[in-house]
């Protein structure tokens, strides 16, 4: 499995990266950790002529813990998310989810930005960020704009990001004190995508619920959150089952996936409730 050739660029600031992308149009792709793109290139299902590696842009590697929100640079690796004590204090659900992504080596390279921007319905971070109501900063030739995670995903591998834009930062609002949280992932083995995964946050009078790999985008379900906020667990599950639209694959047929989705969601809710202060 050998990728086709390409020109390699390693800019040191975002503006240069955007400029290179602009110069080469759809011939160019952004390279973050590469753990989705490189396998695709090795299978020759992707053959960009230019790769714009973001690893030289120091500002994209930062995590800032603010009073109201946490800002995570796009090149922060899953490994960094797990290791960061401040983040674990502010948003422990991120560590819990990151630990369930792939394996240690992949987490060394795989980044939050790549995980979010690729638009792969199997990725864990998009559903989590929808649950947390995060916003993504996108920088393009026209400057910076923000898009809500809940509005970012259009269909599998299609997102609100334009080809000449770079997802640079993730802004995650801090949940109210005492909120319960859980990320629950059912998978065949370590290294696999989710058969079904659920992100749950809940607290006094609110709840937010999103699921992964059960449709061609992550599924954040407002009705499910509303039901859960009212204490109606089964209503929450029922609403979510209405919202998801899983496809049959090697992980199983649709009916199984719905059943597994319900199980994952119930487990996540139970753990989140137990963690609620």
């Amino acid at each position: 499995m050998i990728p086709a050739g390409f020109e390699y660029h390693r800019p040191t600031d975002v503006a240069s990266a955007v400029a290179i992308l602009g110069r080469h149009g759809d011939e160019a792709r952004v390279l973050a950790g590469g753990h989705s793109l490189i396998p695709m290139m090795k299978l020759r299902m992707a053959a960009p002529a230019h790769l714009v590696d973001l690893r030289g842009i120091a500002e994209l590697g930062r995590i800032e813990i603010g009073d109201d929100a946490v800002v995570i640079g796009a090149m922060v690796a899953q490994h960094d998310l797990i290791a960061h004590e401040g983040l674990a204090q502010a948003l422990p659900i991120i560590r819990e989810a990151a630990l369930q992504i792939a394996d240690p080596q992949v987490r060394s390279m795989g980044t939050i930005g790549g995980n979010l921007a690729n638009g792969d319905p199997g990725n864990d971070m998009p559903g989590l960020m929808q649950c947390l109501d995060a916003r993504f900063a996108l920088v393009g030739p026209g400057g910076e704009r923000e898009v809500a995670a809940r509005e970012f995903y259009e269909s599998a591998y299609f997102t609100a990001r334009e080809d000449d834009e770079i997802l640079t930062r993730v802004i995650v609002p801090r949940p109210p004190a005492g909120a319960g949280w859980a990320y629950e992932k059912i998978k065949r083995k370590i290294g696999d995508y989710a058969t079904a995964a659920a992100a749950v946050m809940l607290g006094e009078g609110f709840a937010s619920v999103a699921m992964t790999n059960l449709a061609d985008t992550p599924v954040w379900c407002e009705a499910a959150g509303r039901a859960l906020a009212a204490g109606d667990v089964e209503g929450c599950v029922a609403a979510m089952l209405e919202a998801i639209d899983p496809a049959e694959d090697n992980r199983g047929p649709v009916a199984f996936k719905k059943h597994a989705a319900a199980a994952a969601l119930r487990r996540a809710i139970a753990r989140a409730q137990a963690r609620r202060a």
């Binding site: 065949r188 058969t195 992980r251 199983g252 199984f256 059943h259």
Partner: peptide, 11 residues
Amino acid sequence: HDHWRIWRIAE
């Protein structure tokens, strides 16, 4: 006996 086939037994 992967997950979904075990589920199918139960189903």
